[in-house]
């Protein structure tokens, strides 16, 4: 039984035909009977991308108390920068440059937007970051146009692996691996390093942390830059899986908000668990109830919040 129609270059074939529908990552092509294993793996791929994006939101919210509606646009800009650099210098350079560019954008955003807004009414910060989203989308539309663009995975990660009678693109496995590496790296940094300790302390009590001699403004700027760089990473590694369009950040942004809230606002562990969970249900939704797929994560969020109003894991954990 051949359920996964892939070419040998490993491109998962999600480039949609020109439709008016809003573009988003949709997982694999719909095959109602795709085996459990493939389903689960695809859920992990989407969960991994979501995690890398959502954890940046958690970092930025933790230190600046700003809900960043532009985060999906940073993801989108990351994908486009990756696209252009990949065309010139190859995929790996593309990833590095995209992360660096987005880290730089994070530094600028923090200085011009987040830092001045941190003590403002949440409504103000939402409006401003929402405005930023529109600006970034327009900027990308101006620079790259509104046609769909595609990126090929690097030759090293092309092809498929054969798993119990079916096959799965190597690139997708690599995305799962990358997300796990980010999760491990972040948690080691936060748990084991001095600076990680200051980040955790500052996210619950910036004044007391500052009183101990920590420059919390600089720390926050650094963390926003990292969060923005992670959005860029998420964007570039998703580029070979989706069609690039200026609006590609929209629905994954909503899903990553769902992840942050479901995981427990401010919790890194919670974000990881929630991202994997949302990745799974999202994918099941795409396969079994395609018409309502984008609602399923929201339904899960509501159920979790009824069960545990603070989310899955307490903040700071």
């Amino acid at each position: 039984m051949r359920l996964w129609e892939e070419t040998d270059d490993g491109a998962p074939g999600t480039v949609p035909e020109a439709t008016t529908e809003r573009r988003r990552y949709r997982g694999p092509p719909r095959r109602a009977a795709a085996p459990m294993l493939i389903q689960t793996l695809n859920g992990l791929v989407y969960g991994g991308l979501l995690y890398v994006l959502a954890v940046g939101l958690v970092l930025i919210f933790g230190l600046r108390r700003v809900v960043n509606f532009a985060h999906g646009s940073l993801y989108m800009v990351g994908a486009y920068v990756g696209y252009t650099v990949t065309a010139v210098a190859g995929f790996w350079v593309g990833i590095v440059v995209a992360v660096l560019v987005l880290t730089g954008i994070g530094v600028i955003l923090d200085r011009l937007v987040f830092r001045p807004l941190q003590d403002e009414d949440p409504i103000v910060t939402m409006l401003v970051t929402f405005g930023l989203l529109l600006v970034l989308e327009d900027a990308v539309r101006t620079i790259w146009g509104k046609d769909f663009l595609t990126v090929q995975p690097p030759p090293l990660l092309a092809g498929v692996v054969h798993l119990t009678g079916t096959s799965f693109p190597v690139y997708r496995l690599a995305v799962i691996g990358a997300a796990i590496l980010v999760a491990i790296g972040l948690s080691l940094w936060l748990r084991m390093s001095r600076v990680g300790l200051y980040v955790r302390a500052s996210s619950v009590d910036p004044l007391t942390t500052g009183m101990q001699g920590v420059d919390t403004e600089f720390l926050s700027a650094t963390v926003v830059a990292i969060g923005s760089g992670l959005a860029g990473l998420s964007g570039t590694i998703s580029a070979p899986l989706v069609a690039l369009s200026p609006s590609m950040g929209g629905s994954i942004l909503i899903d990553s908000f769902v992840v942050v809230v479901t995981g427990g606002l401010g919790s890194f562990t919670g974000a990881f668990i929630a991202a994997m969970l949302i990745g799974q249900v999202h994918n099941l939704g795409v396969v079994f109830v395609p018409g309502a797929a984008s609602m399923i994560p929201l339904v899960l969020m509501v159920l979790v919040l009824i069960w545990r109003p603070g989310g899955l894991v307490k903040a700071g954990a």
Binding site: L197, R200, A201, V204, L207, T208, T209
Partner: peptide
């Protein structure tokens, strides 16, 4: 102002 979420040592 003991910081919540941190251990005694932290």
């Amino acid at each position: 102002r003991i910081v919540p979420g941190l251990t005694v040592k932290e």
